[in-house]
Amino acid sequence: MKPISEKPIIDIRHLVKRYDTGFTALKGVDLQIMPGEIFALLGPNGAGKTTLISIVCGTARATSGMVLAGGHDIVKDYRAARALIGLVPQELTTDAFETVWNTVSFSRGLFGKKRNPALIERILRDLSLFDKKDSQLRQLSGGMKRRVMIAKALSHEPRILFLDEPTAGVDVELRRDMWEMVRRLRETGVTIILTTHYIEEAEEMADRVGVIRQGEIILVEETAELMRKLGKKQLTLHLQQPLAAVPGTLASFDLTLADGGHALVYTYDTKGERTGITALLGALGDAGIRFHDLQTDQSSLEDIFVDLVSTKP
């Protein structure tokens, strides 16, 4: 992580979005994204992820609140703010009859940059699109269109990249390529904000995770810290002889019976200094309980996430 003294590259303050229908999609969101980090925004459908991204990128208006991108107000100083930002929206929207090359070059022009065929070529090559450069977009597969949309967003060399559900509905190969690209971009100092349903990806890729639920950010945490704080480990012992109840001599351990008494589950905290496993195994030996197999499980970010969003505020 970067030093705390560094200014956020995206600074969102008290952001509220109320639609004309009366529905409030964002209820006073505060969020700071630091330069160079990969930030994953998680949340169930309809939580406000896309609304938040749309406001920062300028395709929707905030009801109240303020957003700074690179220190520039996104409304008053929209030119400077938007020039920094690249957006890959969730939906595949492409001009059917344009060629790949033209549509990517168009994006660069739109963001006020001089033509740079060498750069466009490099972007297309990085995304395995170069041999399709003269194809019309309607001739491309869904995965290829997704690549084109990424190429468009990168065409103007943004400092901040928003990826809204980038891996939804794409094949394994493209997902791998995409994460490879995200890593490369981060090395060049690009800040990346993504939303995803694949929580294991957030767990693997993101420096920090934010969870949004019903228009409110309920948690922002470094991924590793979150795993440490909320991660639980379980040790499952498969018993040779089933037990009817946990023996009284083992009452001091957090034990439950599973699998009709054939398995004994021990839950322990990963942040604890001592796991208590040695003591437990000793106590089991003393009680004459024998087991033929054991396994440990760690709760994933997905479990943590499900826990968080299913808990009522």
Partner: peptide
């Protein structure tokens, strides 16, 4: 979306 998000 692209036109709306561009510095224009």
């Amino acid at each position: 979306y692209e036109v709306l998000s561009a510095p224009i």
